[in-house]
Simulated assay, not measured.
Amino acid sequence: MKQTNTRAMVETGFVSAIGVILSAISVYLPAFAFLSFFVTPAAIGIIGTKWGRKYSISAAVVTTFLAVVLFGPWNGIPVGLFAAVGVGVGEGNRLSLGTIKRLLLPSIAMFVAVLVTLMAQVYVSGITLSMIDTQMTEQARMIADQALQTNPNITQEQVDLFVKNVDKLATGLKDAFFVAVAIAAVSYSYITIQISIWLGKRLRISIPRFLPIEEWRMPVWSAGLYALGIIGIYGTPHINMDSSWVIAISTNVLLLGSSMCSIHGFAALADLMSSYRMSNKLKWILLGVYAFFFGQALAIFGVIDMFLDLRTRYKARQ
């Protein structure tokens, strides 16, 4: 028993040391920051899978503490946010939870960690979420005025349009901030789970099966959310119902619905590509490029697949 505990503590310390080294790399070489943000939580997840919650929490706490001490709170706190995801990943693997629960557990952990960090920053700096859009608009106005003075080809109408667009974007970001954080947390948790599965295979650690994204299907009502969001944003101004709270609710509904439809479309497209026996590397490269440049088309494709079930129809013809 003592030998097992000693081995668990040694491996936990080793993962913590790796986390601190990767944090240093992300601070001094920002281009390699992804190593800290993806590898560290996945390694913490492996510790939690193999040795339990106590050791994964210990690894997360030690890594965060050392990162804060060595690199300051602004560089160390993000390490703690991502380490919380690793704890959730390890706990989901250890309990052999289903795919949805294993995805939601680290996502909730990260969402709560972001909220706590945000409240701490508000307390320290005094800058609240409601002030972000005003500051962004003022900054955009300053940049536009400087460009107007230095570039004779820029007109006042172009400056006003630029500021108006920035103000609209900032307001939308403020209104949908929490939904955007939740979606980002789910996306990040999924990537971390996939990395932990890859590490588990290399280390010969048994990890419960996680449903491949090709088999994912979003509920049909997500298309309804997508439609309601579009109607709320683009339709209510024509009937004089475009109040601030209607636009805020519509923005959140649209973001949630479009994200779910995009996931469904991504899964359907991945499944169809797999049917052509395309190599995994080429498939994921094409999917990444398509998702980056044609995200809205991906959501529309997801809605079409929800109602027409293109995957089943295609496979039935093979």
Rank of each mutant, 00 (worst) to 15 (best):
Met260Phe: 05
Thr12Asn: 10
Ile21Glu: 09
Ala60Thr: 03
Phe34Pro: 09
Asn240Arg: 11
Asp167His: 12
Ala316Gln: 15
Ile57Leu: 14
Trp51Pro: 06
Trp284Cys: 05
Leu97Ala: 02
Gln194Met: 13
Asn151Gly: 03
Trp216Asn: 08
Ile183Val: 03
Gln139Met: 14
Ala24Trp: 14
Ile77Ser: 11
Phe292Ile: 08
Ala248Trp: 12
Thr6Phe: 12
Met1Ile: 11
Ser274Gln: 13
Gly52Pro: 11
Leu70Asp: 08
Ser189Asn: 03
Pro30Glu: 14
Thr63Lys: 00
Lys174Val: 14
Phe14Tyr: 12
Pro73Gln: 06
Ile191His: 06
Glu91Gly: 07
Val39Thr: 09
Gly302Arg: 00
Val186Asn: 04
Phe32Gly: 11
Gly224Ile: 08
Ile304Lys: 00
Gly52Ile: 07
Ser26Ala: 15
Val69Cys: 09
Phe210Trp: 06
Thr236Arg: 04
Ala113Thr: 00
Leu282Thr: 13
Thr99Phe: 12
Ile233Thr: 14
Phe111Asn: 02
Gly126Asp: 02
Val122Asp: 13
Arg209Pro: 09
Gln135Phe: 15
Arg141Ser: 15
Leu228Thr: 10
Leu104Tyr: 05
Leu115Val: 14
Ala144Pro: 10
Ile154Lys: 05
Ile207His: 00
Ala291Thr: 07
Val15Leu: 02
Ala291Asn: 02
Val166Tyr: 11
Leu308Glu: 07
Thr312Pro: 04
Ile77Cys: 11
Arg102Ala: 06
Met218Pro: 14
Leu286Phe: 10
Thr236His: 10
Ser130Phe: 13
Gln318Leu: 15
Thr12Met: 14
Ile47Phe: 04
Gly88Asn: 03
Leu308Gln: 05
Asp305Met: 07
Leu148His: 09
Phe294Met: 02
Arg102Gln: 07
Ala248Ile: 11
Ile132Met: 15
Gly48Gln: 01
Ala31Pro: 06
Ser258Lys: 00
Met110Arg: 00
